[in-house]
């Protein structure tokens, strides 16, 4: 392990450590696409929150390519993929009693999603 020395602190904090990459898998989705989050329950690390699994939403924006934590956290490589902001209605997530005007945006990696041609959301 490399030790962080006092004279490096400022530069290291300023530089940060972005997980954005310039090369990776091409995007499978675009803004406006209806998508469904896969209903997967992996034993390892994932950034797929449980409350959106199996739920349908709309791609709101494409943030670009980022290291995939699901593989990187296990030393299986960075496997950069597109991350999308997917917009869900409160009703889709929590049922008919949720206010109509509630939206939850969740940043999700490409491989968490499948196309939902018959989706009825929004």
């Amino acid at each position: 392990m490399k030790r962080l020395e006092a004279d490096q602190v400022d530069a290291v904090l300023r530089r940060g450590a972005t997980a954005r990459r310039s090369d990776g898998q091409p995007p499978r989705f675009a803004r406006g696409d209806r998508v469904r989050v896969l209903n997967l329950h992996p034993y390892g690390h994932t950034r797929m929150p449980r409350y959106v699994r199996g739920r349908c939403g709309v791609v709101d924006r494409d943030h670009g390519l980022f290291v995939l934590p699901d593989s990187n956290a296990h030393g299986l490589g960075e496997c950069p993929q597109h991350v999308y902001s997917v917009r869900f209605t409160g009703v889709e997530l929590w049922g008919p009693e949720a206010p109509d005007a509630d939206r939850v945006h969740v940043d999700l990696w490409d491989c968490y999603l499948t196309a939902e041609p018959d989706g009825t959301e929004e």
Binding site: T18, A19, R20, R47, P49, H63, F66, V67, V83, S85, P99, A101, D102, R103, V104, H105, V106, D107, L108, W109
Partner: peptide
Amino acid sequence: EPRKVLAEFGVDLVDGVEVRVWDSTAEL
């Protein structure tokens, strides 16, 4: 239940205002 949470913080939204919650579980 973002509207209830907001109300507890003292933010009472006018009816019809859209609440957009951003769950920052990725790298943004």
